[in-house]
Amino acid sequence: MSRPTSPEEGPMAHATEDRTAPNGAGPDGAAARPASAEGPAKRPLRGRTLPELGALLLMLAALVLFFSLKTPQFMTQGNLLNLLTAVAVTGIIAIPGTMLLIAGQVDLSVGSGAAFCGVMMASIAQEQIILVGVLAAVGIGIAIGVVNGVLVTVFKVNALIATLGMMAVLRGLTHVNADGGTIALANFAGLGTARPFLDIPLPVIILVLVAAIAVVLMRYTVFGRSLYASGSNPVAARLVGVRGNKMLVLAFVASGLSVALSGLVLTSQLSAASPNSATGLELTVVTAIVLGGASLSGGRGTIQGTLVGLLIIGVVNNGLTLMNVNSFYQQVASGTLLILAVAFDQLRLRLAKT
């Protein structure tokens, strides 16, 4: 009989310590001791997640120190705000992406979806008021999430294949609707460039709000516990009554909403919608999530870890740019980080089995 763990702790797949399901039974179907018998399981959370998060923070601090010594412009206020703004666009998508990966799923259509929502919004706004275009983009994002969720849960299409196909479909539709060109859009710069509070860019504020909501959902709600249970052991979770399919569809819808929001922010920053925008964004999102400690096997990950992973990627890209390093090497660095993160995740799983 295993002791209940906190939802943020996210046990690794096949690990010996299983997660307690939301209804109080363990994934193996046996009744677990109520949490009140031992109090809230906060000690295991600190004992297992903080050292890993601490290592990420140490890596981030080392990168900040390195680039600060290499280029004096790095630690200026303007550059740091630019760095956070660039990270925010990716982070808005990476937060629900973390939820999906915790549940053992992935969404590779996020880049194409963001571009499609931006192009559709700009196209509609040219004929209607901007609000109509914004609402249409949000509706399109929700529709994308629903389609992905239904393909995975109802038709049992592997999430990798379903979202990879959706990525191609949406990118093609984006070029068709934009007629291969860029659609200019005036009077919509506020969402991407406004600084309403303490000179902090609005996209950064949006990212903080999205992350805070996600932390609450994953720590204190049945939704979050269900995602952890489904990712850790989907068969056992289903046997104890976890409504995994419903929660997965909701997670995909959250991903679709974040895609629409990021597409709107990108369009606002550029004052135009380009069919080539957000190309490769899905790679950066997956890299940040895995680098932040989420397992490709599901059942493990934290929103906080993803945020630190985003900052690491942002610092590397920003620092290399300030050092006038060729942009192609930034892609090399991003790919290297992804490979190292996945390799470390696999090593961690093997060590857990032993």
Rank of each mutant, 00 (worst) to 15 (best):
T336K: 05
V290R: 02
L101T: 03
L307H: 01
K353T: 13
G192D: 07
D199V: 09
V150H: 09
G244Y: 03
A236D: 12
A86Y: 03
P234E: 05
L239R: 15
G180R: 11
S327C: 03
S230C: 04
I206S: 05
A55H: 13
T163R: 04
R171T: 09
I95C: 00
R3H: 08
I200E: 07
N233R: 02
L135N: 03
T193F: 08
P96Y: 01
I93R: 02
A94H: 10
N318F: 02
G280Y: 04
A37T: 12
L65D: 12
N187G: 05
A189Y: 09
S6H: 14
S262M: 02
A21I: 04
R195N: 06
T336L: 13
A278F: 02
R19T: 14
N177G: 06
L270H: 05
E9V: 10
G224K: 00
L347N: 13
L270S: 09
R43G: 13
G241R: 07
F328E: 12
V89R: 08
G299F: 00
G97N: 07
P11L: 00
L63V: 04
S274M: 07
F66W: 12
I161Y: 09
M1S: 13
K246I: 15
V152E: 11
L58H: 10
N233Y: 00
I289Q: 06
F197V: 15
G298C: 06
F66E: 01
I339E: 02
L266Q: 09
L101H: 01
A186F: 05
M167T: 08
G139N: 01
A62R: 01
L108W: 01
G314I: 05
L264D: 10
F66T: 07
A62Y: 03
F328W: 14
P44S: 14
R300F: 05
S36Y: 08
D28E: 11
T153F: 07
P51D: 11
G298V: 04
P72C: 13
L65N: 12
L160C: 06
V150P: 07
G104P: 01
Q269N: 11
G133V: 04
A178D: 04
G292S: 15
P234L: 05
S277H: 09
A272T: 04
